[in-house]
């Protein structure tokens, strides 16, 4: 086992106010795992990563790297783990792109000659080679994010932590970065831990997922298994659009979408047997089509966190 998190708890105290950030979090990571940590804002994802990064001392519990406690020996992960931290710049704006990567290479004790060639390779891979001599303050948000990832990978770490790597990026930059991370993960076979509330991203990149809610683990498993969980349970019903049908859907508290003058669309879970019976037995509902909802994490997310969290 590469990394083991045992009963990790953290409470932030500010005067008389206490905020529970993590509570009894336990999980483990094997070499080669790509773990996604999912959860809305305030679920405790960043706190968890900062504790593993030894930037935050846990109140309780321990983190073991190959059996060695990070609480007792925090220096053991230096150079072995790399962290892209959320909300941080992670790079220096007054340095050029290349200088940033080389500076972090030197801080991670990469020999000068190796640093130069590895830096060139990484910048080419991340499509930053043409702008390597430009100051970072001229970069777009997506370019800065990619550069920050390059600074994380320059020392070829054993484990990479990416905290909200897509935050602040537009759709195109996010798609580009997702592809870059995916290709790096498949090429190198490294252990990666990604914290995000972008479920589409986690779905595409990870093979295991840990779901956090209010600082506790609510679900853990293989990405494929969790996708199937949603696939089995959600169905989309296409109904004939009529005043009666719309009225009855409202009475049944079922949300619907008017697709056209003739078609309505609503979603039902397999577990909602009574609703299925009502819809199929009522002559006011004419079912035009029924299809399984394509697997996605959105559905699980809604179930776990409810409509309130969806806003996050």
């Amino acid at each position: 086992m590469l990394l083991e998190v045992r009963n990790l708890s953290k409470v932030y105290k500010k005067g008389s106010r206490q905020v529970k950030a993590n509570s009894n979090i336990t999980f483990s990571i094997d070499q080669g795992d790509v773990l996604g940590i999912l959860g809305p804002n305030g679920a405790g994802k960043t706190t968890l990563i900062k504790q593993i990064a030894t930037l935050l001392i846990p109140d309780q519990g321990d983190i073991l790297y190959r059996g060695v406690s990070l609480v007792k020996k925090p220096e053991i992960i230096r150079g072995r783990f790399s962290f892209l931290l959320e909300g941080m710049q992670n790079v220096y704006h007054y340095l050029t792109g290349e200088a940033n990567v080389l500076y972090f290479a030197y801080l991670n004790h990469v020999p000068f000659s190796a640093a130069k060639s590895r830096c060139e390779e990484l910048l080419k891979k991340l499509n930053l080679y043409n702008v390597k001599d430009q100051y970072v303050f001229t970069y777009s948000a997506g370019m800065k994010k990619k550069l920050a990832i390059a600074t994380c990978l320059i020392n070829d770490p054993e484990v990479v932590f990416l905290d909200e790597p897509l935050s602040g990026l537009d759709v195109i930059a996010a798609a580009e970065l997702t592809e870059s991370i995916k290709s790096w993960v498949s090429d190198k076979g490294k252990t990666v831990i990604v914290a995000s509330h972008r479920m589409d991203f986690v779905e595409r990149v990870t093979n295991r997922v840990l779901w956090l809610k209010e600082g506790t683990v609510v679900l853990e498993g293989k990405t494929e298994d969790l996708k199937n969980l949603s696939k089995e349970e959600e169905y989309i019903l296409y109904l004939r659009n009529s005043a009666e049908a719309r009225e009855k859907l409202c009475k049944l508290n079922l949300q619907f979408e008017v697709l056209s003058d003739v078609t309505l669309k609503t979603t039902l879970c397999l577990g909602q047997k009574e609703l299925f019976y009502s819809v199929f037995s009522d002559p006011d509902f004419e079912v035009l089509n029924l299809e399984k909802k394509s697997p996605d994490f959105e559905a699980i997310f809604r179930r776990l966190y409810g409509e309130h969290s969806e806003g996050n």
Binding site: T54, L55, M88, N108
Partner: peptide, 18 residues
């Protein structure tokens, strides 16, 4: 202020040495 303190703190070089 720049937001790079945590980033340099997790490199192989100890912050005190930096």
């Amino acid at each position: 202020y720049l937001g790079t303190l945590e980033r340099i703190s997790v490199t192989k070089t100890l912050l005190i040495h930096i």
